[in-house]
Amino acid sequence: MKIQIIGAGLAGLSAACALTEAGHQIMLSEAAPQAGGRARSYFDKQLGCRIDNGNHLLLSGNKDALRYLRRIGAEHTLTGPDEANFPFHDLKTNRGWTLRLNHGRIPWWIAAPSRRVPGTRLADYLALKRLLQARPGDLVEPLVGHGPLYERLLEPLAIAALNTMPDIAAAQPLGAVLAETVERGGFAALPRWARLGLSESFVDPALAWLQQRGAELRFGERVTHLPPNQPTILAVPPWVAKELMPELDVPDAFESICNLHFKTPRGPAEATFHGVIGGLTEWIFLRETVISVTISAANRHAHLGQEAIAAQVWQEVCQVLGQTLKLPPYRVLWEKRATFACTPAQLAKRPGPRSPRPLVALAGDWTDTGLPATIEGAIRSGEAAAKALLSQI
C-alpha cells in the first residue's frame, strides 16, 4: 500500500526515508517548489552566491540526525573540530574565551579554570544539574538565572536551543538537550555543521536516495484535504496541520529567527563559529565566501529595520574578528514563525505522533519529541511518525 507524506521538510524526509527503508512505497508531496523547509540552501540573486536560509549547529550527540545522514550516505558532509570547543566573545568587555569540554563522562573540565567559563566557580555548575532535573512548570531564568555562568553560557545557550527568552522559556527541553549531549561527555558535544550547505547535507542526498528506491516526489502541489483510508503522515507546520485537521490541538504562539548573510570572501580558510554575548549578534558562522549571523528569539527586535540591524551586526562581527571592514553586500532573512514559543503552555499543546484520525500520523519539530524545535527534533519526529503509522497498518 502506498503511503502519502505531506510536507518535505526534514520531518517529512526523515519519515519518507524510514518508511522506504522498511519496504513501503512512498508518495511525498510538498506545496513549495523545493524540499527542505526551514533547513535548505538556495542561490541568492542579490548576493550572487548560495546561502542557507538559516544557520544550524548540531552536536555529535544528535544521534537521530547523524543516523539519518548515515542512511542517506551524507554523514561525511558535516564538518567540525575534534574537540568539544566553543569559542565565545563578550562585546561589552571585548574579551574572548573558549569553553573546552573533556571527552569523557566525568566532567573534569569544570575543575579547570582555563576550560570553564571565566569568572565561574565549581559550585556554579550545579545549575546544570538543576536543568537536568527540571520539572514541567520550571522556567529557565528563575531556575538558573544568576551569576556569570548564566550570563556567559546558559542564557545564550537557552536562547539558541529554545528560540524563546529564558524568563518565559520552559527549562525541561533545555535539560533534555543537555542530557543527550553535554552530560554524556565532550565526545557527545562536538560541534558539527554542514560543510557546503544545508541542502547539500540534509536535503539533496535524501531526495536522491528516495528516487533511487522508487519514491514518488511531487513539488508545488498543495494538499487541501486528507483522503479517507489513505495511510498518511502529516509533516507540515502546525497551522497547516490545524487547517487540514481542525480537531487537532497544536502550538499557536511562535518566535522568529533573524539570519544575516554577508558576502565577504575569506579564501579557503577553515570554517568555524563564535558565540557572541552583549550585543545583537548571537552566533557567527565563518565560511569561505559568506559570514552568517543568527539572532534567535528575534520577536524582541522586530522594530528594527533591515539596514539598522545589518549595520549593527556587521560592526559587532568586526569587533569579534578584530578587524575594521566596510559593510559588504548582505541579505537579512527574517523567519517570522520559525518555531513555536517554547513555554510550558505551548509545550502542553504539542501532540504526539498519533493523530485523532486513524491512519494519520503527525511529524514536525512542533510535535512532542521531548526536545525543542531543532533539526534533531524534526528528524526524530519523522521516525516516530513512521513507527506510529506502521503500527496501524
Rank of each mutant, 00 (worst) to 15 (best):
Arg71Gln: 13
Phe219Leu: 06
Ala215Val: 13
Ala158His: 03
Leu196Cys: 13
Asp365Lys: 01
Ala11Val: 13
Arg213Phe: 09
Glu155Ala: 10
Arg67Lys: 04
Leu321Cys: 04
Gln319Tyr: 06
Leu327Ala: 05
Leu122Asn: 13
Gly9Arg: 13
Ala194Glu: 08
Thr343Val: 07
Asn62Asp: 07
Ile393Trp: 12
Leu217Gly: 09
Pro358Lys: 15
Ala194Thr: 01
Trp314Cys: 04
Ala171Tyr: 05
Ala188Met: 12
Thr77Pro: 03
Ala123Thr: 15
Phe86Thr: 03
Glu180Ala: 09
Ala188Val: 09
Pro246Cys: 08
Leu69Cys: 11
Arg192His: 04
Leu347Ala: 06
Leu78Glu: 02
His103Leu: 13
Pro231Phe: 05
Thr120Asn: 10
His274Leu: 12
Pro173Asp: 11
Trp209Pro: 01
Ala253Asp: 15
Glu216Gln: 14
Leu196Val: 11
Leu19His: 07
Leu47Lys: 15
Ala188Thr: 10
Glu316Trp: 09
Val140Asn: 05
Pro372Asn: 02
Val144Ala: 02
Gly147Asn: 07
Asn299Phe: 14
Leu217Arg: 11
Val250Ala: 05
Gly364Asn: 02
His89Gln: 12
Tyr125Asp: 08
Leu234Asp: 05
Pro228Trp: 08
Phe202Leu: 14
Thr272Arg: 13
Gln25Pro: 13
Glu151Ile: 09
Ser199Pro: 13
Leu244Arg: 07
Ala134Gly: 03
Ala271Gln: 02
Leu286Thr: 07
Ser292Glu: 08
Leu154Met: 07
Ile277Trp: 11
Gly370Cys: 09
Gln133Pro: 06
Val320Asp: 03
Ser29Met: 15
Ala341Glu: 00
Asp82Lys: 12
Gly73Lys: 09
Val117Phe: 08
Trp108Pro: 01
Arg218Ser: 10
Gln323Tyr: 00
Leu327Asp: 06
Leu244Glu: 00
Gly305Met: 14
Arg331Glu: 07
Arg116Cys: 05
Val290Asp: 08
Gly23Lys: 11
Arg116Tyr: 00
Glu270Gly: 07
Ala189Asp: 06
Cys258Pro: 04
Gly9Ile: 11
Phe285Met: 07
Gly278Val: 14
Phe340Met: 10
Ala194Met: 04
Ile3Gln: 02
Ile159Thr: 05
Ser199Leu: 06
Leu325Glu: 14
Pro113Gln: 04
Gly278Leu: 12
Lys336Met: 14
Thr98Leu: 10
Ala161Asn: 05
Ile284Asn: 06
Pro156Gly: 08
Pro156Ser: 01
Val313Thr: 03
Ile26Asp: 00
Pro136Glu: 12
Ala373Asp: 06
Ala169Glu: 00
Gly305Lys: 15
Ala31Gln: 10
Lys63Ile: 13
Arg71Leu: 15
Lys45Ser: 10
Gly96Val: 13
Phe43Arg: 15
Arg135Ser: 08
Arg287His: 07
Lys129Ser: 06
Gly23Ala: 12
Leu327His: 01
Arg135Glu: 12
His301Thr: 12
His24Gln: 09
Thr79Gly: 15
Gly9Ala: 14
Leu226Pro: 00
Gln172His: 09
Val140Pro: 01
Gln312Thr: 04
Pro358Trp: 14
Ala179Cys: 10
Pro156Phe: 00
Arg152Trp: 05
Ala18Tyr: 04
Leu153Arg: 00
Pro356Ser: 01
Ala127Tyr: 02
Lys242Glu: 02
Leu66Gln: 08
Leu157His: 02
Glu75Leu: 08
Ala348Asn: 13
Gly382Trp: 00
Arg357Gln: 07
Thr181Asn: 04
Gly279Lys: 01
Leu347Glu: 03
Ala361Tyr: 05
